[in-house]
Design a protein around this nucleic acid. Structure first.
Length: 681
RNA sequence: GGGGCCGUAGCUCAAUCGGUUAGAGCAGCAAACUCAUAAUUUGUUGGUUGCAGGUUCGAGUCCUGCCGGCCCUACCA
């Protein structure tokens, strides 16, 4: 068989959040496929990177008061730790914010320009002045211009169903800053992808590169009409790469993100001295992308169009998978089913999830359900009960003797399992891991039955039949090892441990064809622990607690409260309740307010505490309030403050207000229902 | 609002191009066994294929409508 050269990518995780068990469906699936190819002896490399650009990252960095670079470096570290924890092994993990990516972006951009595909159009968008950014539709809320329903998003009304542009909204509000955005126009760059329509028609419909559902979807929804121009630029400010021949404009994140696949390869080539063109400009290299169904559009239309124009390898296959549900529902933070990779690893072995996903993944794009009860049952029953149990029940009988020197007659069991090799491999090849797991587990069933039929535990008692016992164990352990070879892409760690147990590491798929004989067998240690229900419970509990903590934080950050005020005027020393009750705070009504002409800052207020009780108070609020607007309103005053003689008269109390002074003075007002004279407790 | 995918046993999934009596695994039930991490082996229960129509000699599969779930939604379909 000639060696294939295969370049594999998984979608780039966005550097704006943690990896969770939903993401892992894709990374585990891809990693299994890559490990399978490598085990089969193919020249296979797996590239990924963090997707780091765009408005969301820019806004989050601002909110956290640090640079985008600091944010993405931080997230990158966490992402890599999560992937490592789940035994997901990349040949290179890059970043879209790298010099390599900038270089490849330039190259592809020049190609698009040279092909005459780029042109400029004016685009009108809302602009958030405070946040200094253009607003995507989802960042704008306002009142529907048709039905007047309040609180609708920028593109359509979910009350009356009418669609419009954000600029049509009555009273638009930026959800980023709660301020009113203004309408601004900017020049955007567009790619006329319609020029590649015939190519895309051919490429998507050839049956070679896409699942049929996907091909049909594209045919029915995009390819039947002229393809729309793709808006590929965003005006400053934007976190990304500035477009070289269009100063002030940046490439839209979806332009440079998939280019990250190529850039990550380039980075790897620079590190290892590999030949870049051999991987990306060579018809013998197969490029395989693994993605979720949500980003089909970008990977099956724009991406091939870009590659085609720039003369890179086209994807041999885009493998599209569905989404994860937990217990039949969308992952839910409040139910504790929104589980981060790191949270999972605090409680459970990554191999469990790898196996469970493998046992449920098929070649189609159906959603995958993580049923927590089934998860426990399946892992315990399949991996512990059937597979590992084979070693567990046989290894100790041959701890002293090792395996027989020649492979005994097993009635064709090993040969049969060896003959399943290509069927199992074919299932892996088309990502029918579910089918592959079924095949392998059927082999385990046969092996367990063989063991039961032979009843070796009876031989143990008969001194004269020890050779027979060794033979049965040799068979059982070889059938076990064969299964482990087949499971190596899914369970690399178990495979490694098995290699240690039998003193023969698993390095190649073909090892399933030849029995192992004459080696020593090490002392058996548990290769795998059963999942306890309480571990899963503890995991969901932690996920729930995490979600609650972040919800509280999010609620606070929604108001964009900074710590500035507190910093400028630090907290006073602690006081007792006794200290506090000495201060008699009362609700008061301002019944008269006059300017004090000779004073710069003071207004003279007459406060009523109800009945006949009056106070004359001089308040330093002249620069913030007009006397007329104060008359009649309720305020809070300190009523038992020792009267103080001032130049203009005696002040008999104090009106409560916050703010640094000058124009920034904010009087306290009690809520509706308060009446003058009430004490504030 | 528009659009896509899906709905088969208690659970998770099969079923070629429309073709015989809709199949597996897990769970459940019964038994055997005791080497093994309460593991294993044998037998077995379980179905009006979401609902209502239609096309056909024949429908899980094709068509229409409805119900439910998931997902997408770019100045668009």
């Amino acid at each position: 068989m000639t060696q294939r050269r295969i370049l594999v990518t998984a979608a780039l995780p966005y550097a704006n959040g943690d990896i969770h068990i939903g993401h892992l469906v894709e990374y585990i699936q891809t990693d299994i496929w890559v490990r399978f190819q490598k085990l089969r002896g193919q020249e296979c490399r797996f590239f990924c990177a963090d997707d780091t650009h765009g408005t969301a990252i820019m806004i989050r960095a601002r909110q956290e008061g640090r640079s985008e670079e600091a944010l993405i470096a931080d997230v990158r570290e966490k992402h890599i730790a999560d992937f490592t924890g789940f035994h997901i092994e990349f040949d290179n993990y890059g970043s879209t914010n790298s010099e390599q990516n900038r270089k490849v972006c330039h190259e592809i951009w020049s190609a698009l320009r040279d092909a005459g595909l780029v042109h400029e159009k004016e685009v009108t968008q809302l602009f958030d002045v405070q946040e200094n950014t253009f607003l995507a539709d989802r960042f704008v809320k306002g009142t529907c211009p048709k039905c007047k329903a309040p609180d609708q998003y920028g593109d359509n009304c979910d009350k009356c169903g009418s669609t419009y542009t954000p600029a049509d909204l009555t009273d638009p509000i930026s959800t980023l800053s709660n301020t009113t955005p203004e309408v601004r126009t900017a020049n955007h760059l567009f790619v006329r992808i319609e020029d590649l329509h015939p190519f895309l028609e051919e490429w998507t419909q050839s049956g070679q590169h896409l699942q049929t559902e996907v091909a049909n979807y594209l045919k029915g929804h995009f390819l039947g009409d002229p393809l729309r121009d793709w808006d590929i630029s965003r005006p400053a400010p934007y976190f990304g790469f500035e477009i070289p021949d269009s100063p002030g404009n940046f490439w839209y994140v979806w332009f440079d993100a998939p280019i990250g696949y190529i850039a990550s390869t380039l980075e790897w080539c620079e590190k290892t001295g590999a030949d870049f063109d051999r991987w990306w400009r060579n018809p013998e290299t197969e490029v395989h992308h693994f993605i979720g169904k949500d980003i089909t559009y970008f990977h099956t239309l724009f991406w091939p169009a870009m590659l085609k124009t720039a003369g890179f390898n086209l994807p041999e296959r885009v493998h599209i998978h569905g989404f994860l549900t937990v217990d039949g529902e969308k992952m839910s933070k409040s139910k504790g089913t929104f589980v981060k990779a790191a949270t999972y690893l605090n409680h459970l072995d990554p191999a469990c999830l790898r196996y469970y996903y493998a046992s449920k993944l098929g070649p189609r794009l159906d959603d995958l359900d993580l049923n927590l009860e089934e998860f426990i049952q399946k892992v315990n029953s399949d991996l512990v009960g059937k597979v590992v149990n084979l070693a567990s029940r046989s290894a100790k009988f041959v701890a002293d003797t090792g395996l027989s020197d020649s492979y005994p007659d097993d009635g064709g069991l090993f040969e049969y399992a060896a003959s399943r090799s290509e069927t199992i491999a074919a299932a892996y090849e088309v990502c029918d891991f579910n089918g592959a797991m079924r095949e392998v587990l059927a082999l385990a069933d046969r092996a367990n039955k063989y063991w039961d039929d032979q009843k070796p535990w009876e031989l143990k008692k008969d001194e004269s039949r020890q050779a027979e016992l060794q033979e049965i164990c040799t068979i059982a352990l070889n059938l076990f090892r064969q299964i482990i070879v087949y499971l190596t892409p899914v369970l690399p760690q178990l495979s490694e441990q098995t290699g240690e147990l039998l003193n023969d590491p698993v390095t190649n798929w073909e090892q399933a064809q030849t029995p192992l004989t004459g080696t020593l067998v090490n002392k058996f240690q548990h290769l795998f622990k059963r999942i306890e229900e309480k571990q899963v419970q503890a995991m969901t509990d932690e996920a729930k607690a995490e979600a609650e903590a972040t919800a509280t934080e999010a609620a606070a950050s929604e108001w964009n409260d900074t710590g500035d005020a507190l910093t400028q005027e630090p907290m006073s020393a602690e006081c007792t309740i006794d200290d506090f009750v000495k201060v008699d705070l009362r609700v008061a009504r301002i019944v008269a307010a006059n300017s004090v002409p000779e004073a710069d800052k003071l207004l003279q207020l007459t406060l009523s505490l109800g009945g006949e009780e009056r106070r004359n108070v001089f308040a330093g609020i002249k620069s913030a309030y007009n006397p007329e607007e104060l008359v009649g309103r309720l305020v809070i005053c300190c009523a038992n403050l020792k009267p103080r003689k001032m130049r203009f008269g005696t002040s008999e109390g104090m009106v409560l207000a916050s703010g640094p002074g000058g124009k920034d003075v904010f009087l306290l007002t009690p809520d509706e229902g308060a009446v003058p004279g009430q004490r504030v407790h």
